[in-house]
């Protein structure tokens, strides 16, 4: 039985009939076909599936790093297909926070600078207190001036989590956030991420192939044979 959504639950992310295919030397390859699903505000959702099933492609589409061939994606009620490239950039900056498997920290920037980057890109004044609080939250008080190459993998991912929260976005997208970390570190980082999402009241979409990660989410979607289904 499907529970009725309560009246105060608003859909944050609506993916409708999205298809994506790539042209390669071997011809056109379809990754997704008519994928539709909705994520509500405050929900924590996992997308699982075997390697090469199109999880990362879907995340790029949701994260507005790529555009679908068909279908629409709306975030916070805004139809993203109508946005120009520059508007998309601003949208990413304000509404979406990324946590990548490869961390993707800006190498010449210190921890503090990396976390401040989204704020600085948005041309708003950096509130030192907010940044400090975030650093404290991810437990990197003693590493605030360190450069990325001196950090351990876990530390890097914590920087990435703090950075994802820096601009107070609606949606956090995490792509295999524990994929590059050992189990113990991964566990700690995941807890930190989930805790942060709860504390800040964010919506989380996480991509993972790890069932133990998926089991800690509110809902789980599975990609199989180009289609997406919600698991019961």
């Amino acid at each position: 039985m499907i529970s009725q959504p309560t009246t105060d639950v608003k859909p944050l992310l609506v993916v409708k009939e999205v298809s994506k295919s790539f042209n390669t030397a071997r011809g056109e390859i379809s990754i997704l076909k008519n994928a539709s699903f909705t994520v509500n505000q405050g929900e924590k959702v996992a997308i699982v599936g075997p390697s090469g099933s199109g999880k990362s492609t879907l995340l790029s589409l949701i994260g507005l790093l790529d555009t679908p061939n068909q279908g629409s994606i709306s975030i916070s009620g805004i139809e993203t297909a109508t946005l120009s490239e520059n508007e998309l950039a601003v949208f990413r900056n304000k509404r979406i926070g990324f946590v990548f498997q490869a961390f993707e920290l800006i190498s010449p920037f210190t921890v503090t600078e990396n976390i401040s980057t989204p704020i600085e890109i948005s041309k708003e004044a950096v509130n030192g207190e907010v940044v400090s609080k975030l650093i404290n939250e991810v437990g990197l008080d003693n590493r605030r001036d360190a450069l990325p190459f001196t950090l351990s993998g876990g530390e890097k991912q914590r920087v990435a989590i703090a950075r994802a929260l820096a601009n107070n976005p609606d949606l956090i997208l995490a792509d295999e956030p524990t994929g590059s970390l050992d189990r113990a570190t991964g566990e700690k980082v995941l807890s930190l991420l989930l805790n942060a999402v709860d504390v800040h009241g964010k919506t989380l979409v996480i991509i993972t192939h790890d069932e133990s990660v998926a089991s800690r989410m509110d809902r789980v979607f599975e990609i199989k044979n180009l289609a997406i289904h919600e698991r019961n």
Binding site: G63, L65, E85, N86, A89, V90, F91, R92, N93, K94, I96, F98, F100, E104, L105, I106, S107, P108, T117, P118, I121, S122, R163, N167
Partner: peptide, 16 residues
């Protein structure tokens, strides 16, 4: 190249 991509993921425009 990659640094540029990171900045763009964080919301910097291509032009910037």
């Amino acid at each position: 190249r990659r640094e540029g991509a990171r900045l763009r993921a964080l919301g910097a425009t291509r032009k910037t």
